[in-house]
């Protein structure tokens, strides 16, 4: 039961600015993902919310209460750490019950809550073990169970799945999403993995160089990136860009072709996702350089007037390096960016 409000939060380490004036509101029970490359400030922001780091300026509100001057224990949060931070000197039971013992809950209540969350995370068989006897995935479950047992208003997760192998990560992703949806807590989840972000989030905040570039639903971030950075960061392979020169009356010259676009009279960047291209009789003329069959699709890396350009084609196509392809962009998927501001143009 908690809305999180971040107001004008900035953080500097000496001369280095880690966060510039962040403003973000996370709704009650929302699953918010902070997504970005390493060093973008996402973990710093999470740690400021947790109270493990102090903001240089700005305010943090949780559930209508200003918390930025409070120690972590008084903020009504629980946290899952990247390396799990399962206490090695305690059993799984005592790990999960650690926070409850700190609250001086009666023994039977501790037992009840530990067993319930352990059951939820499918680790009820491991309660007597120590962390040294657990696999990475099991430690991960203990860390999540420990946070859930607190029945917190807010659960903060710092790259919780990044130390797991790919298969386990996919499994835990789905499970975590389910468990969190049931627990009615507000969640903030930090990751650099866009697949994780897309699949789990209610909303994604894409961060870059200490700023939130776009905060929107996964599909919105994917379809309508607010800036070139988002377009290049989300999607694998990322969005293609080509310089476009205005021809007047909403016509644009792109890669030797004329394409419909916005009514603007300055040079823009034309952008299209590789999967929104198909082979056609008319369109952009591209020379194939590298052809990578990926099973489900064929990824072709081409050259258009010296610019790199990727297309995801049907895997039945036969394309060889050196072939000349004619690629037609799907008209409603074309996006335009202002190269000066790098922001999207309507």
């Amino acid at each position: 039961m908690a809305v999180i409000e971040i107001k004008n939060v900035a953080k500097t380490f000496g001369a280095y600015t880690a966060l510039h004036d962040i403003n973000l509101t996370i709704q009650d029970q929302e699953f918010m993902v902070l997504l970005g490359a390493s060093g973008c400030g996402k973990t710093t922001l999470l740690r400021i919310i947790a109270g493990l780091e102090t903001a240089t300026t700005g305010e943090v509100w949780i559930g209508g209460r200003r918390v930025d001057h409070l120690p972590p224990k008084d903020r009504g949060i629980a946290m899952v750490f990247q390396n799990y931070a399962v206490f090695p000197h305690l059993t799984v039971f005592e790990n999960i019950g650690f926070g409850l013992r700190m609250q001086k809950l009666p023994n039977d209540e501790v037992k009840r809550r530990v067993e319930r969350t352990a059951g939820l995370m499918h680790i009820d068989q491991l309660l007597k073990r120590y962390s040294g006897e657990l696999s990475g995935g099991q430690r991960q479950r203990v860390a999540v169970a420990r946070a859930l047992a607190m029945e917190p208003d807010v659960i903060l997760m710092d790259e919780p799945l990044s130390n797991l192998d790919a298969l386990l990560r996919m499994e835990m992703r789905a499970e975590l999403k389910g468990v969190l949806a049931e627990s009615n807590t507000t969640a903030i989840y930090v990751t650099h993995d866009q697949v994780e972000a897309m699949s789990m989030a209610d909303r994604i905040s894409v961060m870059h160089k200490g700023e939130i570039v776009q905060a929107a639903t996964p599909l919105e971030v994917y379809r309508n990136p607010a800036a070139e950075f988002v377009a290049g960061f989300i999607g694998n392979p990322p969005m293609n860009f080509l310089p476009a020169t205005p021809k007047g009356a909403g016509k644009w010259a792109v890669g030797g072709q004329v394409i419909d676009g916005p009514q603007k009279n300055k040079a823009l960047n034309f952008a299209i996702r590789p999967e929104d291209l198909r082979l056609a009789d008319s369109g952009l003329t591209a020379r194939a350089k590298v052809v990578e069959p990926l099973g489900a699709h064929l990824l072709v890396t081409c050259d258009i007037d010296g610019a790199l350009f990727r297309a995801v084609l049907d895997s039945d196509m036969t394309v060889k390096p050196g072939d000349t392809l004619t690629l037609a962009p799907q008209p409603d998927r074309v996006r335009w960016f202002d190269p000066d501001t790098t922001r999207a143009v309507a």
Partner: peptide, 15 residues
């Protein structure tokens, strides 16, 4: 001793 162990304890109600 990883600092995360201490931080985890702080988030779990420890001073």
């Amino acid at each position: 001793i990883p600092i995360e162990l201490e931080e985890a304890a702080w988030t779990l109600g420890c001073t």
